[in-house]
Design a binder for these strands. Structure first.
Lengths: 251, 251
DNA sequence: GGATGGATGTCGAAA
DNA sequence: TTTCGACGTCCATCC
């Protein structure tokens, strides 16, 4: 369902009738403002405006993946006429933020009954953690897993293990290049475990590491283990929809 | 310029001809895959596909602000026919990632000559830092600014100052709620300054602070200063396009 | 191109 | 609701 070059009144009615029914795409020339935690002015130019039934508002220009201005799901979007011109007002309740678009010209409004669907992402950090828990020898031989996502006062530990000598081993996992933030994170966890449970050391597992991260790693006497995420991806894609076999290696 | 219910061949020609000329919006029913650092399958359903002249590819469903799958600016997007069906292939060079969409049905393809424009955002952390540098008494009376965005081995310090006693004061600024990461960040900076320059202390400036962040703040003997970002916003919006007056308070 | 940190980040999970 | 951390984060900036 679409209208080409609609009159303001017609466009307003269309938007208000259908804003909860499907995805509305508006090709238009408009200016606008964003007010909220920050503030921005949108110069008058051609944009693609998208209104989703969940309240999402997106205003896209011809560049970048990120919208120029937007409001997230849960916002209230409404078309109003003001002195014959069409205004599109979007209000996000908390934090209170508004996007107001003033339409100079509407080229097309289209309604599209997009079904809701989601994608399942594979190869995330969580997948990597799950793999490592089942293959701890990749991290270091002789480790026994104590827990995954173990809460401490400093945050959640990806993997907590114990080595043959009974010392705690904190494993922090990054799916791509680990920077110094990751090292500081690991250092905090090791400190927290040492304080709460006893002697502990740390291992950073990642596909790579920045030079400054490596510098700090040595300074704090932490260990780095390099993993190829590509190999994990292959394993994940091959096994596809096969549930976890419980008859599994436990060391 | 638009085509309704185009034939695959027609759609492919349209896309390949215009993909660098303007913003292309495709209303379609398609399935797809993403392969790269991670992997995902897009189930066959209605989507809004956007191709931007800078190479950006977005596939939006009816929910959420984030696209279901995408490729960022700099990607190469191409339409190909394979056995009579239309494939849209997007290749991001580095890291190597691909999105492939298989069109079951194309309802509409529209080309929109969106001019490139950007928005200037006000009320960012940088704005807050600039304000504080000119009004250091808000942070603490008697501070002299040494530098802004001062590089250390631990990262960039938002504001480095000296107090009346000659002690260095590291100021870390957050535009909204500061969490414990911000506290750890500040702690690192203070340590780095203490090591490189001499005795130092730290002040965290934010609109609010989480309870655990406050806990660590006290543990590390750091100070918290609360600022109302709303007041800054008003000042920023009022002065509008007024350049910085150099006749200014230096204490 | 790598490194670093902000963002109206967004999003999901857990407490 | 708040807090917390990942994200295919994206993005500008600086080196």
């Amino acid at each position: 369902m679409r209208i080409l070059e609609p009159e303001p009144r017609e466009a307003a009615a269309f938007i208000n009738t259908n804003r909860r029914r499907g995805l509305i795409a508006i090709f238009c020339i408009c200016g606008g403002t964003y007010r909220g935690r920050a503030a921005a002015e949108l110069p008058v130019a051609p944009y693609l405006v998208v209104i989703k039934p969940d309240g999402t508002l997106l205003v896209h220009g011809s560049e970048k993946a990120t919208p120029l201005v937007w409001n997230p799901p849960g916002s209230s979007n409404m078309a109003v006429l003001e002195g014959g011109t069409l205004l599109l007002k979007s209000l996000r309740p908390r934090p209170s933020e508004s996007v107001v678009l003033k339409m100079e010209r509407v080229l097309e409004i289209a309604l599209f009954d997009a079904g809701s669907s989601s994608v399942r992402l594979r190869g995330t950090e969580r997948d990597l953690v799950d793999f490592l828990v089942k293959n701890m020898e990749v991290v270091e031989p002789g480790l026994d897993v104590v827990g995954v996502e173990v809460p401490t006062e400093a945050g959640h530990i990806d993997i907590l293990a114990v080595d043959g000598a009974g010392e705690y081993v904190v494993v922090e996992v990054k799916r791509d290049v680990a920077d110094h933030e990751a090292v500081f994170q690991l250092r905090r966890y090791v400190e927290a475990v040492a304080k709460a449970r006893g002697r502990a050391r740390g291992i950073l597992v990642a596909s790579d590491i920045t030079s400054s991260a490596f510098h700090y790693l040595r300074e704090y006497n932490l260990k780095f283990v390099k993993v190829k995420p590509g190999e994990l991806m292959e394993k994940l894609l091959n096994k596809s929809s096969c549930e976890s076999s419980s008859t599994d290696m436990r060391r």
